[in-house]
Write a protein that binds this DNA or RNA. Structure first.
Lengths: 225, 225
DNA sequence: AAATTCTTGTCAATCAATTGACACAACCCG
DNA sequence: CGGGTTGTGTCAATTGATTGACAAGAATTT
């Protein structure tokens, strides 16, 4: 009933919690306190408790959190307790690399189809999945109950394809094209703008070098406070 | 002289400004006001002015911003006015896809070398760049004045390789491995955690569906139920 | 079984980011 | 060349996110 909008800042941290909890689980550790977890993850105990409490009380006073239970709860929150069916649009290098990355499947993200506008690539097969022509995409999405489309195509055709995807009722788009997609609000877009990320790195490198120059800082494993 | 730490939130928006300014430039538009730009970019004029002013006054009252000038200034801020030399570590599907993505080169990020621990892949060539064994990496970095290492290897070996990279004086790591890298502070790390990104998408899909269910909202063009 | 320790959930305080408001500089039109 | 208009740079207000503090519940020890 209560509509308390949950911030993307919190959501963005959940996968990281999940990762560390998974590691603890693998090590056979059954319980963990927010303090211990924050030490491992280099964050504050307060933030962990605050974040988790956004979704309800998963811990127990005097005990901490049960690793397995918390892990499962976060999985559920993230919607990883069910299967997601994906298609890849764009069978170029990146599209192929994503199909070949099997870890997504382990998390329940199943690649069902691959589409490309180049007829030359079609009828090829990537990891057992046939590459189909774009014309078949709309029907395929509807017939196979596809959740998510991965957009791995050049920017100039991305907007057009996104519109088409929106029309056949896709729920989310994982966008690797270097444009912002103007889609209706009920469709979720998650952007992976690789060049933006690389530019951020470039900035941070440049600015850290400037800093050490102006302050006469030494680099290396050497230490100047 | 003045050390006013610039927030990553601002840095993160600069590449997007650059992208839109580039488009305006291509359209032959010479001047733009913060208001116009914010309309196009779906943000607030205030934020644009605030962001730009972090780095100094690029605009002129009564006129706005000169597109070409602002574009160049942001490029400089991001450190894109000089060449960056990169190596790829890991010649798997992802590593290959990144090498084949020529847009990075257009921005001044030049791939100089590729390294892999699998001797079978070595001596192969990707886009004219020879794949070398890991043993040669340290020397190669020093001899070719490499800035940035792209880490496209499985998580279990990533930390170890990152340490090695740190030792040979790399300045930044573009990390595609699904781990946090414990490197010295003077080395910049930019993480691209693809599965985290996909999980966020999964969350947003799940939560938007819940919302429309509980509030009886209709979807998109359409009508659900 | 009581006392002590531990650690959550939560509220308050601080810190950071975004938005709004406006003085004033530069432009443009007549 | 002067008056009206535009639009920046900046400061203040607001909103949001993170951190700190602590009461109270549960576990563990004696």
């Amino acid at each position: 009933m209560e509509e308390k909008e949950i911030s993307q800042a919190v959501i963005g941290r959940l996968p990281r919690y999940l990762r560390y909890l998974g590691e603890l689980k693998d090590e056979g550790i059954e319980r963990v306190s927010s303090q211990e977890l924050s030490d491992i993850m280099q964050t504050t105990a307060s933030q962990i408790r605050q974040d988790l409490n956004t979704f309800g009380g998963f811990g127990q006073q005097g005990y901490g959190y049960n690793v397995g239970y918390l892990y499962d709860e976060i999985r559920k929150i993230l919607g990883l307790d069910r299967e997601h069916r994906l298609i890849i649009v764009g069978a170029g290098h990146l599209g192929q690399a994503l199909v070949n990355y099997t870890n997504f499947e382990r998390r329940g993200f199943i690649f069902r189809g691959i589409f490309d506008c180049d007829p030359g690539i079609c009828e090829k097969t990537i990891r057992g999945i046939e590459v189909r022509p774009m014309e078949q995409m709309a029907d395929f999405i509807r017939e196979n109950d596809i959740d998510i489309a991965v957009l791995a195509i050049p920017k100039n055709s991305a907007v057009e394809v996104a519109k088409k995807l929106a029309d056949c009722g896709i729920k989310g788009i994982w966008n690797f094209a270097h444009v912002d997609l103007p889609v209706p609000e009920h469709i979720q877009v998650e952007n992976v703008h690789l060049s933006d990320s690389l530019m951020k790195l470039s900035y941070n490198i440049s600015s850290s070098q400037e800093e050490s120059r102006t302050s006469g800082k030494v680099d290396g494993n050497g230490q100047n406070r």
